[in-house]
Design a protein around this nucleic acid. Sequence first.
DNA 1: AAACGGATTGGCT
DNA 2: GCCAATCCGTTTC
Length: 200
Amino acid sequence: MKLPLSYYLNQDVIFLAKDLLGKVLFTEINGDITAGIIVETEAYFGVIDKASHAYGGRRTGRTETLYTQGGVSYVYLCYGIHHLFNVVSSVEDEPHAVLVRAVEPLIGKEIMEIRRNMPASKTAISSGPGSAAKALGIDRSFNKKDLTENEIWIEDHRIKYSPDEIVSGPRIGVAYAQEDALLPWRFYVRGNKYVSKPRS
DNA sequence: AAACGGATTGGCT
DNA sequence: GCCAATCCGTTTC
């Protein structure tokens, strides 16, 4: 059920970003369990990716998490407000990561409603990286957590999407990355309501 | 000690 | 669909 450490050591972050679609992301906070099906991701390709925080081998207090062995969470604050959740992958000193941009609520929807202050009938409840993290209760305290432990983890529920259900396109909000902004490293499930815009 | 800038959101039209 | 608020952690001086 729970993805093993070996899953995260895969050195092909593009494959992982695709493969994580359909996997189920869990958190447990004070006994409250919430979970959502991952339906949108982006791959960040380590030191050679201008959109990555680790571009050029940049190594600071914040980015240090990216350089750990795979199977760890990387959570950082964006725009001073939003917590963005990433899965660190590959081996130590290879700072590859997958950003989770949207989940489809699966377990603990009423808890998500409280965290997001909106009914679960609204797709905005977990659409977009900041919203998905908030619905799952993920904040900065979840940075550098071991994904094989019991605070935050990912399970395989055998949800499988066929190749034509998986759409790829340019990543969102990375215009500053110049030519790398055009790389088709965003992946999402075709037709899923929770995928953030743009959907084409 | 101070400036920077962003892997966005949501409210409004 | 467009546009503007927001704001603190991170980085650097």
